[in-house]
């Protein structure tokens, strides 16, 4: 079973320097967060979809498709009902939906999906090792990058352990969906204790395995993955900086915004 998102292709996205990729991802988030109008958010979403094509990350995005749909639907519905607006559009019993609130919800749904897709694209074309190397190139302190790298490596193990424990306890009749709130909370104890114990054991073994392979935090080490910043990296970074600059300028000029207010 494939636990991570990484897909081994030879695309320009894969070849980019991981530090540049990390900065570009952050810049993409900056762009996505500047607009509230669905028309502009649609452009951001389409850009994310284009990135999926460039990085051949369709498989990874497909794995989160249900989550993308849920995120989009709930954001649209929730904010359409909760945000105030000027132009009454629909009345659903005691609830009202304004044109502005609906647009805001629609835009937010697309924005969140675009950011999630961009994140999956990043993970699909960047190994954990490259991500850690990228952070180090960005002068993130070693203890932080090391802990992050280990956490990324450990998440799949934690998921696998959790799945096994849930199966074992459900086989013995554990039901998490019955009873009062406090009863349900108590029922998590048979899950949490074995997961905690197994995680402690796995962490211990992982630490021993790292030591046994001559790893020692803070000591110098070489890397077979050597990343050089090339012309393509600077060009891509320039494009993302340009997009971020444009979007900040548009935000400053109040372009691409849904004007909300009391209905």
């Amino acid at each position: 079973m494939q636990l991570g998102f990484y897909q081994d292709f030879d695309t320009i996205a894969h070849r980019l320097h991981p530090a540049i990729k990390t900065v570009c991802l952050a810049l993409f988030f900056v762009v996505a967060l500047q607009f509230t109008h669905p028309g502009y958010d649609l452009l951001v979403l389409l850009t994310a979809v284009a990135l999926v094509g460039i990085a051949q990350a369709g498989k990874g995005v497909s794995r989160v498709r249900v989550f993308l749909l849920v995120l989009f639907t709930f954001s649209t519905l929730l904010w359409a009902l909760l945000k105030p607006g000027h132009t009454l559009w629909r009345e659903l019993g005691p609830l009202t939906v304004t044109r502005e609130s609906f647009f805001y919800g629609l835009g937010l749904g697309m924005r969140l999906d675009a950011m999630l897709i961009a994140g999956v694209v990043f993970l699909s074309c960047t190994t954990v090792e490259a991500f850690v190397a990228g952070l180090r190139a960005l002068y993130v302190p070693f203890p932080v990058t090391f802990a992050l790298g280990l956490a990324f490596r450990f998440v799949p193990t934690l998921f696998a352990t959790t799945a096994k424990v849930v199966q074992a306890q459900c086989s013995r009749g554990l039901r998490l969906d019955q009873g009062s709130l406090s009863a349900r909370a108590r029922r998590y104890v048979p899950l949490l204790v074995p997961i905690f114990v197994a995680t402690l054991r796995n962490t211990n073994l992982l630490a021993m395995a790292l030591e046994a392979r001559a790893f020692s935090p803070g000591r110098p080490r070489t890397s077979v993955q050597e990343f050089d910043v090339e012309l393509a990296d600077w060009v891509i970074l320039g494009v993302f900086l340009f997009l971020a600059g444009i979007s900040l300028g548009l935000k400053f000029a109040q372009v691409g915004q849904v004007v909300l207010g009391a209905a």
Binding site: D8, E129, L206, L210
Partner: peptide, 18 residues
């Protein structure tokens, strides 16, 4: 529990890198 790299070749390279 003792495999923690993202690919087989990086796994083999981890020790010598250290």
């Amino acid at each position: 529990a003792q495999l923690f790299c993202s690919s087989t070749d990086l796994e083999l390279a981890f020790g010598p890198e250290n």
